[in-house]
Design a protein around this nucleic acid. Structure first.
Length: 570
RNA sequence: CGGAGCGUGGCUCAGCCCGGUAGAGCGCUUGCUUUGGGAGCAAGAUGUCGCAGGUUCAAAUCCUGUCGCUCCGACCA
């Protein structure tokens, strides 16, 4: 490709609406342009890089035994109602109407479609296992699109769905995808690592996310360098000890705490109740019902864990207006010891199990209770791990201190079980004549997000640093004179032809620009290898080969193609 | 949706507080010079100052509303 034939609108300055480096570079390097918030056009170079990522995914999925299909983006609501997700995923669904008033959903994923398909087409255990995948546009009515391609309303996702006869086989399918993902991200030049994850609205009972460490990421990951334990903070647990039991205290005792409405205030003079001897009482509305959640004063509730453990779908903190009539006190004086309506469930964090000599709100403004023994004085409905792990806590596996860091989620694998196959009747006849639902798994890769993660991880002060495998062009030939009869241009054309013939993706910068402009642009776009053809070196019978992140080397003109091929194959 | 901020040539921004001729740099066009890391000189083109109302003799500037964009939070590939 010649530079002047394509469109590479590089920008000297980053547009003001880009915040993180990868977003700035996507715009500055002329890879994408914004049409509206969360909606982008892929320019020629951006599309080339995207296609390379897609092809790596395609090759590894095929190799792992998955077969490619293409499902509609336009989906009838009926199948979403059948799966129950018309309700639970309602907030992300784009809903459109056709001219006759019939409603359609724009596909955010395709569990319903693929399960409907297999319900019709798969009847026998002899047809299993199967794993179908597609690479297609997905639509999500994201509440807040962010950071360019990182979280967009419209994006490209690879989604795959496996169907197996048994749980064990489904586990094997899961493992295959897990391994394929590891290869995919490695081939994309990405340092991505799997972490244990919550399953969210897609459902299922076992899952890993593939994370790319990045400060701009939207996830926190807890990990242990010693043993390799890693989990999304939404799921992570630690080996932190339970609250120490003390001697059985006296009966609970109410004491006045005028104006004290925070854990911190209660920990100071004159009360001096340390946060770790306080019980924090939170009121949540879980699927329209109020519940109490008890957490130790120095811990933070993990809402995701709470929803996952209790099976609640819609979870939100109750408002002060909802709390007052329920417990008879305002937030700051709440507790679960007295005056809790019998039908309000009380969930407590396991760290509080056995705790006594605790202090908590009295459900009376301006009063707290001390000498609370949680098992004696509070009717806990159920105990769960509900707290959020902090850095430095002992690893749940090896007790070494955990670390926490930000990361970008580029892939997610789920073991789904039979949730969808049961609801959508995707059953098969087993060898023994019995009809069973297929055991499913689903596997997603955010392709456009992966592309941005590659840039987020690969850049320097001059621009993008592409891995060879996904660079829009592997080699940029830069003649410093572009008149057709110049030696530089003639040699450039020759190199172009020879490298192209050997299967290398080459772009020839035939712009009549000053050298500095061409070099700056080549660095900004980030081509892995640049060949500079200038008078000075040509006079010595040489050209310069410059890897994007290493010093240039002068090579004889006749050795140039071979030298480049060596770099390309490295 | 809650909180914060921003909308002025293609891009980055000044001007707004204190109302009175719409500006700079980059980019773009033409010419000359220059040609190994974002050139110099000269001459040009490009704006209903997001939109709609209002106040005023007069609004980019003040007021109201609205739309869009960005950031923080809830959601997720």
């Amino acid at each position: 490709m010649k530079w002047t034939q394509t469109l590479i609108p590089t920008l000297r300055e980053a547009p003001a609406d880009a915040e993180i480096v990868s977003h700035k570079l996507l715009l500055r390097a002329g890879l994408i342009r914004k049409l509206a918030g969360g909606v982008y056009t892929f320019l020629p170079l951006g599309l080339r890089a995207l296609r390379k990522v897609e092809n790596i995914i395609r090759e590894e999925m095929d190799r792992a035994g998955a077969v490619e299909v293409l499902m509609p983006a336009l989906q009838p609501p009926e199948i979403w109602e059948a799966s129950g997700r018309a309700e639970t995923a309602s907030n992300v669904l784009f809903k459109v109407k056709d001219s006759s008033g019939r409603q359609w959903f724009l596909s955010p994923t395709a569990e319903e479609v693929i399960t409907t398909l297999t319900a019709n087409e798969i009847n026998s255990y002899r047809q299993l296992p199967k794993n179908f995948y597609q690479i297609s546009l997905k639509f999500r009515d994201e509440i807040r699109p962010r950071f360019g391609l990182m979280r967009a309303k419209e994006f490209i996702m690879k989604d795959a769905y496996s169907f197996d006869t048994t749980d064990e086989n489904a586990m094997a399918a899961y493992k295959k995808m897990y391994d394929a993902y590891t290869k995919i991200f490695a081939r994309c030049g990405l340092k991505a690592f799997p972490v244990e994850a919550d399953t969210g609205v897609i459902g299922g009972n076992y899952s890993h996310e593939f994370m790319v460490p990045a400060d701009s990421g939207e996830n926190d990951v807890a990990y242990c360098e010693a043993c390799g334990y890693a989990a999304n903070i939404e799921k992570a647990t630690s080996g932190i000890p339970k609250t120490a039991a003390r001697e059985i205290g006296a009966a609970t005792e109410k004491f006045a705490t005028p104006g004290v409405v925070t854990i911190e205030a209660l920990s100071k003079e004159p009360y001096k109740v340390p946060a770790n001897r306080q019980i924090k009482t939170l009121v949540y509305i879980a699927d329209a019902k109020p519940v109490l959640i008890l957490i130790r004063g120095d811990d933070q509730l993990n809402e995701t864990k709470f929803a996952a453990k209790t099976g609640a779908v819609a979870v939100r903190p109750a408002t002060a207006e909802e709390i007052l009539p329920l417990l008879g006190a305002k937030p700051g004086s709440l507790g679960a010891v007295v005056n809790v309506p019998a039908d309000v469930k009380i969930f407590a964090d396991e760290r509080l199990q056995g705790a006594n000599d605790m202090t908590t709100g009295a459900n009376e403004d301006g009063f707290h209770l001390k000498n609370v023994s949680i098992e004696r004085d509070i009717k806990v409905t159920a105990w769960f791990d509900l707290r959020t792990v902090s850095a430095g806590e002992p690893c749940v596996k090896c007790a070494k201190p955990l670390k926490i860091r930000r990361a970008i989620e580029v892939g997610h694998v789920f073991k789904l079980g039979t949730k969808y196959s049961e609801k959508l009747n995707a059953t098969f006849l087993d060898a023994d004549g019995s009809r069973k639902p297929s055991v499913m798994g689903c596997y997603g890769i955010g392709v456009t997000r992966t592309l941005q993660a590659i840039i987020e991880q690969g850049n320097d002060k001059d621009g993008v640093v592409w891995p060879l495998s996904v660079a829009p062009y592997q080699v940029c030939i830069t003649p410093l004179a572009v008149t057709p009869d110049s030696q530089a241009m003639q040699l450039a054309e020759k190199f172009y032809a020879e490298l192209t013939a050997q299967g290398v993706d080459v772009i020839l910068d035939d712009r009549d620009e000053r050298p500095g402009v061409k070099f700056k642009d080549a660095d900004l776009v980030g081509f892995p290898i640049r060949i500079a053809l200038g008078e000075k070196s040509l006079a010595k019978g040489e050209v310069e080969i410059k890897p994007r992140t290493a010093a240039f080397q002068s090579v004889k003109i006749e050795d140039a193609v071979e030298a480049v091929m060596k770099l390309v194959k490295a």
